[in-house]
């Protein structure tokens, strides 16, 4: 119910953007800037690239305002653009990416205040090591499987939405997810 209301509201906002309402674009940007950047960051695992791609996503949304039709959920359309850009970047930049470390430009790793209450430096180091393993395991997944896992786990998108984003059937998405989680469980089993 809430999602349906949100869908209608987002589509309505986008239709207002189409009519030239810049304030509605600002609302959409504030609402989806975080999810899009986080998704892209987890896809490409480089903060500056993720932000650059996110800029391109919102530029494309703005450019497409005149032709926008609310045929699908706004988030489906948005993540379709984001996934398309991320997959293209991964395909085109894979040879270069091999030469640089994951998140090379990231600076200090992000830690929230709540998560930072670990009492000792050993715990913090353990946490970082665990996080690094998770990141490596996700990065090692095939691109489509990774995109499906990130949309399913972090964005809590439905199978039908993921299917539309990845341009495949719902059963293909379920199969992708099942295989991806199977692989991740195997790689991260020792963390138990």
């Amino acid at each position: 119910m809430g999602a349906a209301v949100a869908l209608e509201y987002d589509a309505e906002l986008m239709l207002r953007v189409k009519e030239g309402d810049g304030a509605s674009f600002a609302v959409l940007l504030d609402k989806y800037r975080g999810p899009v950047i986080h998704f892209l960051y987890r896809m490409v695992q480089n903060r500056s690239i993720a932000e650059e791609l996110a800029q391109e996503v919102f530029l494309r949304v703005y450019r497409s305002r005149a032709t926008y039709e609310p045929a699908a959920k706004f988030t489906t359309w948005l993540f379709r653009i984001a996934t398309h850009l991320a997959l293209n970047w991964l395909r085109d930049g894979r040879h270069e990416k091999g030469q640089e470390q994951l998140d090379a430009n990231a600076g200090p790793l992000p830690m929230r205040e709540v998560a930072d209450r670990r009492p000792t430096i050993e715990h913090a180091l353990l946490y970082q090591a665990k996080l690094e393993e998770v990141r490596q395991a996700v990065a090692a997944l095939p691109d489509k499987q990774r995109a499906a896992v990130l949309m399913h786990k972090y964005e809590e998108m439905e199978y039908s939405q993921i299917a539309r984003v990845l341009n495949c059937s719902e059963s293909a998405v379920k199969s992708l997810l099942f295989r991806a989680y199977e692989t991740l469980r195997g790689r991260l089993a020792h963390m138990a």
Partner: peptide, 11 residues
């Protein structure tokens, strides 16, 4: 384990 991978702060 995946929950431990928190979102990065946005510029």
């Amino acid at each position: 384990a995946l929950d431990a991978w928190e979102a990065m702060p946005v510029s």
